[in-house]
């Protein structure tokens, strides 16, 4: 049996006594594209930070390909794009790419190849060699996403990858994420149900830190007798509040 890309068991995270995340079980198979959706404050970002090892759970275990979350071995398997990730203003786009490739890869030749790939994905033209302080918000996001995608880690985690971007950039970025299917396991969070329907194979509804429903998008819409994922989410929330 293949080791799951991610296994979460009875994970609880509290801040100032308030439970932010309380996930009994979550398993993502290798190569799967999984989306966690939920409103603001549902615990999406906290869950991702627990998975990448930035936060430590108060209780429970998180394993990435069998490795305990937060260890160097686990972190080497993850490429993570935080929601509002920034750039180093005085480094060029190309230097950003090289920095991250070499940070993750021991082999300089491999790092160089992946850097070329990231440059192609970012598609910034000559701007790639300008300082990042001159980039627009969309260009910065494209650069960082290209880095994360080109890293080709077994698990790629994207927190709100298209949040705050214009339609054209968002479409471009979704296309970039879809191109990853089959190459890596994807875990992303989003408010945007359309985005999730386009990108994810499996979806988890997160509310008040708990996963209230999980399944394939079509399966979820059918289960709640909804026309789309958005409606299914609203119904799932109402149902969980009742019972």
């Amino acid at each position: 049996m293949q080791t799951p890309a991610l296994t979460i068991n009875n994970v609880v995270k509290k801040f100032s006594g308030k439970t932010i995340v309380d996930i009994k079980r979550l398993e993502i198979d290798d190569g799967e594209a999984y989306a966690l959706i939920g409103p603001n404050g549902a615990g999406k970002t906290t869950t991702l930070r627990l998975i990448v090892g930035i936060y430590r759970p108060d209780n429970g275990t998180i394993r990435i390909y069998g490795e305990r979350a937060g260890t160097t071995k686990a972190r080497e398997k993850i490429a993570y794009l935080p929601e509002d990730a920034g750039v180093y203003p005085r480094l060029t786009g190309w230097e950003h790419i090289n920095f991250y490739m070499r940070l993750y890869m021991d082999d300089p030749r491999e790092a160089e190849e992946k850097a070329e790939e990231a440059a192609k994905i970012a598609d910034l033209g000559k701007k790639l060699y300008d300082k990042a302080s001159t980039y627009s918000k969309g260009m910065k996001r494209r650069l960082l996403l290209a880095i994360v995608l080109a890293l080709q880690r077994p698990l790629t985690i994207l927190d709100e990858p298209t949040s705050g971007l214009d339609v054209f950039t968002a479409v471009k970025i979704r296309r970039m994420i879809r191109s990853l299917h089959g190459k890596t396991t994807i875990l992303l969070t989003s408010h945007n149900m359309l985005e999730v329907e386009q990108v994810a194979e499996k979806v988890g509804f997160l509310m008040n830190g708990r996963i209230i429903a999980e399944g394939e998008p079509r399966e979820l819409t059918a289960r709640y007798g909804a026309e789309n994922l958005e409606e299914a989410f609203v119904k799932a929330v109402k149902e969980s509040e009742k019972g």
Partner: peptide, 14 residues
């Protein structure tokens, strides 16, 4: 301030 730390902290860098 620039929010560059999170990506770095999640990398294999200790």
């Amino acid at each position: 301030e620039r929010r560059t730390l999170e990506m770095l902290a999640a990398s294999p860098a200790t």
